[in-house]
Simulated assay, not measured.
Amino acid sequence: MSRTSLLRLPGLTGLVLVVTSLSVLPALAESRETLGWVEEGLVLPEKTRVKFKLDTGALTSSMHAENIERFEKDGDDWVRFTLELDDIQNDEQVETRLERKVVRTTKVRGAGGAEERPVVLMKVCLGRRVHEAQFSLNDRDKMNYPVLIGRRLLEEIGPVDAARTFTQEPRCDA
Rank of each mutant, 00 (worst) to 15 (best):
M1N: 12
S5C: 10
L6P: 03
L7R: 13
R8D: 12
R8N: 14
G11Q: 03
L12T: 11
L12R: 12
T13F: 15
G14E: 03
L15N: 02
V16P: 06
V16L: 15
V18T: 11
V19Q: 00
V19E: 06
V19G: 05
T20R: 08
S21H: 08
S21Y: 11
S21F: 14
L22M: 10
S23R: 11
V24M: 11
V24W: 08
P26H: 02
A27P: 02
L28G: 13
A29Y: 12
A29K: 13
E30G: 09
E33P: 06
L35Y: 06
L35S: 07
L35C: 05
G36W: 01
G36I: 04
E40R: 15
E40S: 14
G41Y: 04
L42Y: 14
L42C: 08
L42K: 12
V43M: 06
V43E: 04
V43D: 04
P45W: 09
E46D: 11
K47S: 15
T48N: 08
R49A: 05
K51T: 04
K51C: 03
K51G: 00
K51W: 09
K51E: 12
F52M: 09
K53C: 06
L54E: 01
D55F: 06
D55R: 07
T56W: 04
T56E: 02
T56K: 08
G57V: 11
L59D: 14
T60M: 15
T60F: 13
S61L: 07
S61K: 06
M63W: 07
H64D: 04
H64E: 00
A65Q: 01
A65W: 02
I68H: 03
F71T: 00
E72M: 07
K73M: 12
D74N: 15
D76Y: 12
D76R: 15
D77A: 12
D77C: 00
W78P: 07
W78T: 07
V79P: 03
V79E: 02
R80P: 03
R80N: 06
F81R: 04
T82E: 14
L85W: 05
L85R: 06
D86T: 12
D87N: 10
D87E: 05
I88V: 09
D91F: 13
E92V: 08
Q93T: 12
E95W: 03
E95F: 06
T96P: 00
T96L: 01
R97I: 15
L98C: 10
R100H: 10
K101M: 04
K101H: 01
K101G: 00
K101V: 00
V102P: 01
V102M: 05
V103H: 12
V103N: 11
R104D: 14
R104I: 08
R104N: 11
R104L: 13
K107N: 07
R109I: 08
G110S: 10
G113E: 02
G113P: 04
G113Q: 02
G113H: 02
A114D: 12
E115P: 01
E115K: 08
E116K: 13
E116L: 10
V119G: 08
L121E: 15
L121I: 14
M122H: 12
M122N: 13
M122S: 13
V124H: 02
V124T: 07
V124P: 01
C125V: 05
L126C: 03
L126R: 01
G127Y: 00
G127V: 03
R128H: 11
R129H: 09
R129Y: 10
